[in-house]
């Protein structure tokens, strides 16, 4: 279990800690005014060695702590490996398997690692294509019963997309209750982007354009994917877009289709 930050750049705001420190030091050097009639016999004299003295430690510490807390909140901390009873769904990418099958032992080990990190109470659902290459010539044995779901692989995957990596537009639409989760999807989508860029061409366009917004915002014109994170039904405009060949992934707790994880919609593909 370790702590992580979703937005580490916010740590730059720690520079603001200098502010209360400065205020503290300058305020101390402010001199108290004192009426003194016998001024004639007074000669200005400073302390021989002006030490940098801080008087009100507690106050300063409180101010600094408060600022640090705000900065950490801005950085969006999260616990990795936090034990929870959330069900896990692993989608094995069928589209581009050769990226991971170079080292079969590693591939196998990653399954075991996943198994070890999960709590015993958590269920694991794995959605795999019909063919799962790169395994060590035997069935994966894990400590838990895995709900394997085999879906049909997209026939044209692998060849066509590999050759012409087209920029895909992913629209994420969430309501208020799913705003938290949408950030994770956002981050995941960005991670896909980074991965494909490495493989294809550093100078190429990003493979995915991610558009995150609230449910009431219209979809971009050329959307390929819609991630619907809301308990409401799809608005009519989105229904029409779906009928015209769009892909929709919707949250399980929202849907009328009670399946763990995410359910493919009528036209959804199992690539991701």
């Amino acid at each position: 279990m370790s702590i992580g930050l979703l937005f580490p750049a916010a740590l730059a705001a720690l520079a603001a800690l200098a502010l209360p420190l400065l205020i503290h030091l300058t305020r101390r050097s402010e001199r108290q005014l004192m009426a003194f009639a016998a001024l004639r016999w007074l000669r200005a004299k400073e302390r021989a060695r002006r030490r940098l003295r801080i008087d009100e430690w507690l106050l300063l510490a409180l101010r600094l702590l408060l600022l640090t807390a705000v900065v950490l909140l801005l950085a969006q901390p999260m616990w990795f490996g936090k034990s929870s009873d959330h069900a896990w769904v692993v989608v094995v990418p069928g589209a581009n398997p050769d990226a991971v099958i170079d080292d079969p032992t590693l591939r196998d080990a990653s399954w075991r690692e996943l198994d070890a990190t999960l709590a015993a109470s958590q269920s694991l659902t794995v959605i795999v294509p019909e063919r799962l290459p790169g395994l060590d010539a035997q069935r994966i044995t894990l400590s838990r019963t895995v709900d394997w779901r085999i879906v049909a692989a997209r026939p044209d995957v692998g060849e066509t997309e590999q050759v012409t990596p087209r920029t895909q537009t992913v629209a994420i639409r969430h309501d208020l209750a799913h705003a938290e989760i949408s950030r994770y999807f956002d981050a995941a989508a960005k991670a896909w982007n980074a991965g494909t860029e490495d493989h294809v061409d550093a100078s190429a366009k990003p493979s995915f354009v991610i558009d995150t917004a609230r449910t009431d915002v219209a979809l971009p014109a050329n959307s390929d994917w819609l991630l619907w994170l809301s308990s409401e039904a799809l608005p009519p405009a989105n229904e029409r877009w779906l009928a015209a060949g769009g892909n929709v992934l919707r949250a399980s707790d929202a849907a009328a289709i009670p399946t763990p994880g995410f359910q493919r919609s009528a036209a959804a593909r199992a690539d991701y």
Partner: peptide, 30 residues
């Protein structure tokens, strides 16, 4: 004790300094 801005109420002149450092000299002169 501490840093002060001593001000003469009649002339408005000011003397800045640390009271502890000025003390001995002042007492002698006064």
């Amino acid at each position: 004790r501490g840093d002060f801005r001593f001000r003469d109420p009649e002339t408005g002149d000011e003397v800045l300094g640390n009271a502890e450092a000025m003390r001995a000299d002042y007492l002698a002169r006064f």
